[in-house]
């Protein structure tokens, strides 16, 4: 009797296994793949890069300390970034936070041309020619935007382009809160 029950149980094994797989596949259909904005507290990595506009000038992490800044990663070869540039001009016009740009694996001359043509909202503009600072930051593509507090800690990370409306609803509160301890 026991033997026959055990024999019968074996037959059900493949069926159960496949049902398990079906459940997994069904759940997998609903995995969200949209990268969400991350609120984190990782320190901004140390670096030493030249400013694209003043090549003799070396910029380091120390230059970011002391104030809340927005770090924006972009590139001239990235169409989305070039279109987004206008948005940043408008944003900084209205909310003059320090905007630290970082051009990713880019050509300095092309960048300078774009800034000359369209305008330059950047306080500092890092030239990450090899993309190594980008790797340190965990950059996946361009454009990406970080908010760094006065102690050099990354407090916010967004993947993708930003328009003024998004800035005002998502980034501005964070900036205001971080600045809340000092003069707003």
């Amino acid at each position: 009797m026991m033997l026959t029950i055990r024999a019968h149980l074996w037959r059900f094994l493949p069926a159960f296994f496949l049902i398990g797989i079906m459940w997994l596949l069904w759940k997998a259909l609903y995995i969200k793949n949209i990268p969400e904005d991350q609120i984190s507290s990782k320190p901004f990595p140390s670096f030493s890069l030249n400013d694209v506009r003043h090549e003799e000038k070396a910029v380091t992490l120390a230059d970011l300390q002391g104030q809340v800044s927005i770090v924006h990663v972009w590139a001239s070869w990235c169409d989305v970034c070039v279109r987004e540039h206008q948005e940043w001009l408008n944003i900084i016009n209205q909310w003059p936070y320090p905007l630290v740009g970082m051009v990713y694996r880019d050509d300095a001359n092309t960048v300078k041309t774009i800034l000359a043509e369209k305008g330059d909202p950047f306080t500092l503009l890092l030239n990450d020619r090899t993309g190594q600072l980008g790797v340190d930051l965990g950059i996946v593509g361009t454009p990406e935007t970080f908010i760094v507090d006065a102690n050099g800690v990354i407090r916010y990370h967004h993947l993708g382009a930003i328009d003024q409306a998004y800035f005002e609803s998502e980034l501005l509160p964070v900036l205001k809160q971080l600045n809340g301890n000092d003069v707003g």
Binding site: R105, G131, G134, V135, V140
Partner: peptide
């Protein structure tokens, strides 16, 4: 390569992949 469907960083042309290779090289 973290932005590609399924390629290693040697085969991918993506900037992230090349930047990673540069970092590894150094």
């Amino acid at each position: 390569c973290v932005t590609c469907p399924n390629q290693n960083i040697a085969e991918s042309h993506a900037p992230v992949a090349k930047a990673m290779q540069a970092e590894i090289y150094q």
